[in-house]
């Protein structure tokens, strides 16, 4: 339980590589990701399906299914300790009490045959050493905190008796029950309706602010993170391609992919006769056949010869703003 941090960041992911061995070849789902999160900070990790954002999150908490997945390189330094070096027991302790996780589909994350109470009480007893009675009363406080009406009655319910939004509230209660320093929300609101999504996002923001918890929001929706994230990372084909404070990323994108993503989303505040959306041509590459050089080059309007030969490295393009593009000066 030492808080002596040798790294100045709460979490620092260095050159993380996770691969999957499939019948069709090796999939380099996460291919050298660098990422850091400070205490109390909210970071957005944005990308399309198959870009590796969820695998990156699973790698951080070492929940990648092995086989076929495997973390083959890099470091995940959390509060000064490399999580990749911990044994299974130590890792389980970190997962429950220091890093909380919320997944997209609350129905498959909750155990259908256990009451909400059992599922809330378990981590409290396991990680905080509470007695059954203490844990039970804390559990109903937690339900109240996440806005479940009549918590002392609903706590005896089973997951199927709750709506999607309520289940996600339960997931948040479980994830925050042991006061973690970091909460990872992997597409936590994607399956929900817009008005329910707004409720859950506001709830996550309020609670993480209240407890000073850092938040890693993983999503495909650029709109969802715009309101909440201090910093946004954009991922494509296993790598982070651009990272900047949110105002900078949305206002002054320097990677052609980010620019394309922003242009391809219709804007709710744009009049309907504003013309065509700018589209990114082509398809997301097959993960077993990532193009050589910069993985985005076959779809990129700015691509030059160099792009198909050499993979660009991260370059500082502004204050706290990095992008991996040879031609970034022309972008925008």
């Amino acid at each position: 339980m030492s808080f002596a941090a040798s790294s100045r960041h709460l979490l620092e992911v260095k050159n993380l590589e996770t691969q999957f061995h499939t019948d069709y070849g090796v999939v380099r789902a996460v291919d050298g990701v660098d990422l850091h999160i400070d205490e109390g900070e909210t970071v957005g990790l944005v990308g399309e399906s198959g870009c590796g954002k969820s695998v990156a999150a699973l790698s951080i908490v070492r929940l990648v299914p092995d086989p076929p997945g495997r973390i083959v390189g890099g470091q995940v330094v959390f509060e000064g300790t490399d999580l990749l070096r911990l044994d299974v027991r130590e890792m389980r302790h970190v997962r429950g009490s220091k890093i909380g996780i919320i997944f997209q589909e609350p129905l498959s994350s909750l155990n259908p045959v256990l009451s909400i109470e059992r599922q809330l009480v378990e981590p409290l007893q396991e990680h905080l050493g509470m007695t059954r009675r203490q844990a039970a009363s804390r559990a109903s406080e937690l339900l109240d905190m996440v806005g479940i009406p009549d918590p002392s009655a609903r706590i005896r319910d089973y997951p199927h008796m709750m709506s999607g939004g309520q289940r996600q509230r339960i997931m948040i209660a479980i994830a925050l029950s042991c006061n973690p320093r970091l909460l990872i929300a992997d597409e936590a609101t994607t399956a929900l309706d817009v008005t329910i999504q707004a409720q859950i996002l506001e709830l996550m923001k309020d609670l993480t602010e209240q407890f000073g918890t850092a938040l890693l929001m993983i999503t495909h929706n650029l709109g969802v993170v715009a309101r909440y994230a201090d910093r946004v990372c954009v991922m494509y084909a296993g790598k982070i391609r651009e990272m900047a404070p949110s105002g900078e990323l949305y206002g002054n994108p320097k990677h052609p992919y980010t620019l394309g993503l922003l242009g391809s989303v219709p804007r709710l505040d744009a009049r309907r006769d504003t013309g065509k959306l700018t589209q990114i041509p082509g398809d997301v590459p097959d993960p077993t056949r990532i193009p050589p050089g910069c993985a985005f080059n076959p779809r990129c309007d700015y691509a030059v010869e160099r792009c198909s030969a050499e993979d660009p490295w991260m370059e500082e393009v502004g204050e706290g703003h990095v992008a991996a593009c040879w031609e970034w000066e022309r972008v925008g």
């Binding site: 309520q166 008005t195 409720q199 650029l222 709109g223 715009a226 309101r227 206002g251 505040d269």
Partner: peptide
């Protein structure tokens, strides 16, 4: 309309969001 997320942090942070209660 107010719940629909927009990819614009300046706008997003300054607009009022009507959060409906319940399901």
């Amino acid at each position: 309309l107010s719940a629909a997320p927009m990819p614009d942090p300046v706008l997003e942070r300054n607009r009022e969001r009507i959060v409906l209660t319940g399901d």
